[in-house]
Lab assay of single mutants.
Amino acid sequence: EESQDIKALQKELEQFAKLLKQKRITLGYTQADVGLTLGVLFGKVFSQTTICRFEALQLSFKNMCKLRPLLQKWVEEAD
């Protein structure tokens, strides 16, 4: 059922947002740094506010889903 899928996805997004924040802090990056690095990787800079709202799960579900693969890549590249 679709609502189950969405619930599962939301849970996954929550966990990912936590992971992103932990990783960012561990590596000593600011939210603005992450936004700028996305610009380098994908040619589209994201504001500190956007990263902040992603981490706080304050973006729309659709936006969270759109941003996630980009931030996933950041997490992979950041090591």
Rank of each mutant, 00 (worst) to 15 (best):
I6A: 12
K66M: 13
L20T: 02
C52W: 07
K11I: 13
K11W: 09
Q15M: 09
E76M: 12
I25F: 05
S47P: 12
S60D: 14
E14L: 09
G43K: 04
E1S: 03
A78K: 09
G28Q: 05
F61W: 11
L67V: 06
S47A: 06
L41V: 07
K21S: 09
K73L: 07
A56Y: 03
V75C: 06
T37H: 14
Q58T: 10
F46I: 13
Q72H: 11
K62C: 04
V75T: 07
K66L: 13
L59Y: 15
Y29C: 02
Y29S: 01
F42E: 04
L41Q: 12
I6L: 09
K11M: 13
R53D: 11
L41A: 02
K18H: 04
E1K: 11
Q10W: 15
V34I: 11
T26E: 12
L57A: 03
A56V: 04
Q58M: 01
K11N: 12
I6W: 06
Q15G: 12
Q22W: 05
K73V: 06
F61M: 12
V40S: 11
K23R: 13
T26D: 12
L20R: 07
Q4G: 11
R24K: 02
G35W: 01
T37E: 15
I25T: 03
L9S: 14
Q4R: 10
L71G: 04
F16Y: 05
M64L: 06
E14V: 13
A78M: 11
E76H: 11
C65T: 05
Y29P: 05
T50H: 12
T37W: 14
D5H: 10
Q15W: 05
K7G: 09
W74H: 13
L19V: 10
I6K: 15
F46T: 12
Q22A: 09
L41W: 12
L36G: 07
C65S: 05
I51R: 03
L71C: 04
F54Q: 00
K73W: 04
K23P: 00
L38S: 06
E77F: 15
F61T: 13
T49K: 15
T49V: 07
L71M: 08
A17S: 04
M64V: 02
D5C: 13
L70Y: 15
D33T: 00
K7Q: 09
Q10K: 15
E55Q: 04
E14M: 07
L38R: 04
D5Q: 03
I6Q: 13
A32W: 02
V40N: 12
L71Y: 05
L9V: 12
I51M: 02
S47D: 07
E14H: 11
L57V: 11
F42T: 14
V75Y: 06
L59G: 05
A32E: 11
E55I: 06
R68G: 01
L57Q: 13
L71I: 07
R53T: 06
Y29F: 01
C52L: 11
Y29L: 11
E76D: 12
W74T: 11
Q72S: 06
E55R: 03
L19E: 05
G28E: 00
I51Y: 05
V75I: 13
C52R: 15
T30N: 00
T50I: 03
L38E: 02
R53M: 03
S60I: 07
V45A: 14
K44P: 07
V34R: 02
I6C: 05
L70H: 04
L71W: 07
L27P: 07
V40G: 12
K18G: 09
S3K: 08
L36E: 14
Q10L: 08
L13W: 03
Q4I: 07
Q72F: 03
L19Q: 12
D33S: 03
S3Q: 15
F42I: 04
L9R: 12
Y29G: 03
Q15L: 08
V75L: 14
E14I: 14
T37R: 15
S3P: 00
R68A: 08
S60A: 07
S60T: 06
R53P: 07
T30W: 06
T26G: 13
L19S: 11
E77V: 09
V40L: 11
R24S: 06
E12K: 15
A8M: 07
E55A: 10
R53H: 13
D79C: 04
F42V: 14
M64I: 00
